[in-house]
Write a protein that binds this DNA or RNA. Structure first.
Lengths: 139, 139
DNA sequence: TATTGTTATACTCTATAACTATA
DNA sequence: TATAGTTATAGAGTATAACAATA
């Protein structure tokens, strides 16, 4: 028998990376059933909360480069869940189509269940500390 | 002024992904100064703790696919920090060279400081809960 | 038969530089 | 001058299938 325990497991940065990879793989699998990526779902959730954001604004909030928003929004547009509404001749608001509203409802179901399952895996004593700790590491 | 606050920030999965991305970008920057990637450093730390592991065993512990270990170890071998020691005609043990021992010392300095800085960013009240919560999400 | 190391390949995410058209 | 949207490109992580050689 080989030793499969992980001597690095106690390192916070290492554990953070492993946990994020595991959870994102899990979420990607669940969202795959409605043909969406994690980043797609994130954009839909944001657009559902805040109307008439431009591509650049979405990118700033989610920390996605402007350039990387292009294929992402093209994909969502091709899927028929968002459309572009001109603000002026330079900027466009990203809005949900009616199919997008339906898709968002399914995204909310899936991510809501996912977030619940994630929290349930954390022992109760540590649960309330999880998000505040993570937030201290962002930005 | 546009609103740059993030309505998704309270979601545990989302915060987990954002925190991991931010911290790994930070660590990658620090390790870049000694020309190593995060995954390179992780392998060196593991090999430093456990002698004579094969490529497959390292991959199992770190959850890196066998196939993805190949370019990783080739890179470390080319950098002169590891070498392969035949176990039988099928398997090879991965061992540190003397340059590898030096490199590992620098990796330990950098990652030790990084882990400390990471923990320092977490408010004291939440700090002790961080790793246990993450470990509950792994595997 | 199962496992080791390997090749080839592809997809996703992320990052940067540069261009245009407009504010 | 600065910003919005875009193009092109590259680096890095991750995933699968398949093969030869060996246990």
């Amino acid at each position: 028998m080989t030793d499969h325990t992980d001597p690095l497991a106690a390192l916070p940065g290492y554990a953070l990376r492993r946990a994020a990879n595991a959870m994102m793989a899990e979420l990607a699998g669940r969202l795959g059933e409605i043909e969406l990526r994690v980043s797609d779902a994130t954009v839909l959730l944001l657009v559902g909360e805040r109307c008439d954001m431009t591509s650049s604004e979405i990118g700033k909030v989610l920390e996605i480069q402007r350039a990387n928003m292009v294929p992402l929004l093209s994909r969502l547009e091709r899927a028929g869940v968002i459309e572009r509404k001109p603000i002026d001749r330079k900027s466009q608001a990203i809005v949900l189509t009616s199919a997008g509203v339906d898709a968002l409802a399914r995204v909310r179901d899936i991510t809501g269940q996912f977030e619940q399952d994630l929290l349930d895996r954390i022992p109760a004593a540590h649960r309330a500390h999880f998000v505040p700790a993570l937030q201290a590491l962002i930005g």
